[in-house]
């Protein structure tokens, strides 16, 4: 391994970051929508969401990526690699996020909702102004847990030929015949990426505490 390999690592890390980043952002939102659909108890829709969450959580990401990339084109839907990867990661993480959102929603203190109603707020109003900001901070530990899993599971997208951080380290290992150094560097980069996320979580929590007191 040489210093010149550094640019390869940076390229791979960037691929991992932007693909996971988009999947996380979309997955958190989709998870919220799914959770609301499930809690809303709309007949049929609610059951469909429950089945989606069950199957989605049980499906390994590798399987899902391959499925999307191989099966969709045979039905005439053209997908490029990056899109399939983002879609697969998003669909997977959304199933977990739906359960996280549902969990914090169910635990939301009723007294606050009653107070908001007594103050004359409508349902959409108190959901957006009262509940959502608090739900966000309550869901943060769970969501960040899920994000750490997503980043750690993201090497699965290499199966459809995306050159992410893990694939870069495997290539360098194959060309230098020394597997350990590149793998260690890659692990280190993953840990730095996740460390950044954890710091952001703690910083947001401190901000929430300031609001609460």
């Amino acid at each position: 391994m040489q210093i010149s390999d550094l640019s390869l690592f940076i390229g791979g890390a960037w691929t991992t970051v932007w693909i996971s980043g988009l999947a996380i952002a979309a997955g958190v939102l989709l998870g919220l929508v799914l959770a609301m659909l499930r809690i809303g108890r709309v007949p049929v829709v609610s059951q469909l969401v429950a089945i989606y969450v069950s199957v989605g959580r049980a499906t390994p990401i590798v399987t899902l990526v391959l499925f999307l990339f191989v099966v969709l084109p045979s039905y005439g839907i053209r997908v490029d690699r990056e899109f399939a990867a983002i879609l697969a990661l998003m669909l997977n993480t959304a199933a977990f996020n739906a359960e996280i959102w549902r969990s914090v929603y169910v635990a939301f203190p009723l007294s606050q909702i009653e107070a908001a109603r007594a103050a004359g707020m409508t349902r959409p109003q108190y959901f957006r102004r009262i509940m959502l900001p608090q739900l966000w901070y309550a869901a943060l530990p769970g969501l960040v847990n899920e994000v750490t899993f997503l980043v750690k599971a993201s090497p699965a997208i290499a199966v459809i030929g995306i050159v992410d951080l893990t694939r870069v380290s495997a290539r360098i290992a194959a060309s230098t015949w020394q597997p350990m150094p590149p793998l260690l560097v890659a692990s280190l980069i993953y840990m730095v990426l996740i460390y950044g996320l954890l710091r952001a979580q703690r910083a947001m929590e401190r901000r929430a505490e300031r609001f609460a007191s």
């Binding site: 959580r57 977990f96 359960e99 996280i100 969990s103 169910v106 899920e146």
Partner: peptide, 16 residues
Amino acid sequence: ARSGPMLGNQLIYILK
């Protein structure tokens, strides 16, 4: 009682 769905997530991760 309150974090059931999240604990379920985690159990599934343990399984995987």
